[in-house]
Design a binder for these strands. Structure first.
Lengths: 239, 239
DNA sequence: CCCGGCCATTAACGTGGATCAGTTGCGCTC
DNA sequence: GAGCGCAACTGATCCACGTTAATGGCCGGG
C-alpha cells in the first residue's frame, strides 16, 4: 500500500526496518475518490493526512472570476496534505484529478512518530519542505518562463517525480488529465496550452495525447525548459 | 534579539517560558549584511539557519537570461532558511534586500529542540509550512492575478506580516526596496511596475515612494487584491 | 562643483498570450 | 444510430505587458 511512498522516501534518505514498521502501523482507512472530487476544502479542520496510493491529485485555489490556479500536482507516493498535521486546516483545496486511491494517516499517529522516531519525523518534515521547493520552482515558471518553457518544465518535473516511484521511463508516462487542467497548473488558458502542445509536438520534443506524455527528445525538452532537478533533492548527501 | 520572532510565533500558538528559554539558548553568532549581499547560495551545505532580526531578506532564483524571480520576502522575525535544517542545502539563494542584521541558529541546537521540546519542534515545522503557504499564494498571484491585483496583494501581505511584529500600521510601513526588486517579486518588468504604482497612486489606494508604503485606502486595496489573509494562519484555532 | 551611477519615470512601439467564437471528434446513453 | 456532452482544436482579433530608449532627480565621491 505504501510502497511508492517508501520509494520516494528512500530516494532521499535511508529508512530502517523499524521506521518502515512505524509508517506501516500509522496507516488507516483506504478511500477511493472519483475524478474531479474535491475531498479537502480550505478552512475545514483536519485530523488525518492523505497519502496518495494511486492516481493524481492536485492542490488548488479558486478566484472570484471563476479562475483557478493549481499550485501542485501530486503523484503516487506523495503525502498530499502532510502539512495539515501542523497547520490543522489548509488554505487551499485538494482534489482528485483522476480516479484515485488514498490512505488516511491520522494525525495522532503522526504525533506518535514525532515522539518516538525523531529521524523519521525529520524526514517527514523534509517532505513538506520538498513540496515548498516545488512551489518555488512553479513560482519561477509562472513569473519568468514563457508558455512553452513552462510547459516543458512541468513535463520534465513529472517525468522525474514519476520516475522515482517507477511510473515513468525516459520515453513516456501516463498523465491522464485534460488540457484545461494543464492550463490551470501553468497559469495559461486552455486555448493557449493547445497551441503550445502543438508547437512542442511539431518541434519533436514531446507529444501529449490521450492522457499520455510521450517524450521524443528528453535532452531537448530539458534544454527548452532549462530544467535542473536540484530542487527535487534527489540525493542522499548529508542526510 | 529574538523578540520579533517570538511575536510571530505567539501570533500562532502559545509558547511557554521554558520553550522561550530553549529558543534563546539556541541563538548563535550575530551578523550584519550590507544591502544586495547574497549570503546563502544554492547547493552549498549549511549547518545553521538564519533568523532575521532587522531589515529585509529575500529568497530568489536566477535564470540564464539574466532574469530573476524572488520567491519570498522575509521580514524581521522570520527564519529565512529554517528549511535548511532538513534540506541541508538550498535550491535557491538568499540575499539581503536592505542592510540587515541576522542571528545564526546552529542546526545541532535545532536538533536538540526537536528532541527535547516536541511542541516547539512542531511549531517550527509549522513555520516552514507557513512559508510554503506564502509560496502558494504567490503562485496564485503570478499565475492568475493581473499586474495591479498582484501588486496590491503583495502590499496587503506585507502590511499584515509586518503588522504582526509591530512594523506596520494600517496607514503605512517601511519597505526600502527598489521598483526593480518589486518587479522581481511580481514577475513583471520594472517599467510596468512603475506604471502600476502610478495607477495605484492615482486611484488613491497606495503610494510607494522613497522606500515607504503609504496606504490611502486599506479596504479598497484589499478589494482590488481580493486579499484573504487566511493563508497566513493568524489564529490559534486548534493549535 | 562636477561627474558617474543608480533609480524613477515616461513615451513609442512590439508581441505573447487572452478572448471570442466557433468546428470537429469521440464516447455514452437512450 | 441519433443526440448529447465534453475535450481537442483553430482562426481572428484584442490588449496587457514587454522592449527600447531617452530624460531627469538624487546622492556620494573626487
Amino acid at each position: 500500500m505504501i510502497e511508492k511512498h517508501l520509494m520516494k522516501l528512500r530516494a532521499r534518505d535511508d529508512i530502517s526496518a523499524e521506521e518502515e514498521r512505524a509508517l506501516r502501523d500509522a496507516i488507516g482507512e483506504v478511500i477511493d475518490y472519483p475524478a474531479d472530487h474535491t475531498f479537502i476544502t480550505a478552512g475545514r479542520e483536519l485530523h488525518a493526512s492523505t497519502l496518495l496510493v494511486d492516481g493524481f491529485l492536485c492542490r488548488y485555489k479558486d478566484l472570484s472570476g471563476g479562475q483557478r490556479q493549481i499550485t501542485e500536482i501530486h503523484t503516487p507516493g506523495d503525502f498530499a496534505d502532510l502539512h495539515s498535521f501542523t497547520l490543522k486546516y489548509l488554505d487551499h483545496n485538494v482534489m482528485a484529478l483522476t480516479p484515485s486511491r488514498v490512505v488516511q494517516v491520522p494525525h495522532d499517529k503522526l504525533a506518535a512518530i514525532t515522539e518516538n522516531h525523531p529521524h523519521l519525523a525529520r524526514l517527514l518534515w523534509f517532505m513538506t519542505n520538498l513540496d515548498a521547493a516545488i512551489h518555488r520552482e512553479w513560482e519561477v515558471s509562472l513569473g519568468r518562463r514563457s508558455a512553452i518553457e513552462r510547459t516543458a518544465h512541468l513535463f520534465c518535473e513529472l517525468q522525474v517525480r514519476l520516475g522515482v516511484v517507477g511510473l515513468a521511463s525516459a520515453r513516456d508516462y501516463a498523465l491522464p488529465i485534460t488540457q484545461s487542467e494543464l492550463a490551470e497548473c501553468l497559469g495559461l488558458t486552455s486555448v493557449h496550452v493547445n497551441r503550445v502542445l502543438r508547437e512542442l509536438r511539431e518541434r519533436e520534443l514531446v507529444e501529449f495525447r490521450s492522457g499520455r506524455v510521450m517524450i521524443a527528445d528528453l535532452a531537448g525538452l530539458k534544454r527548452v525548459a532549462e530544467f535542473d532537478p536540484a530542487y527535487l533533492y534527489l540525493d542522499k548527501r548529508a542526510r
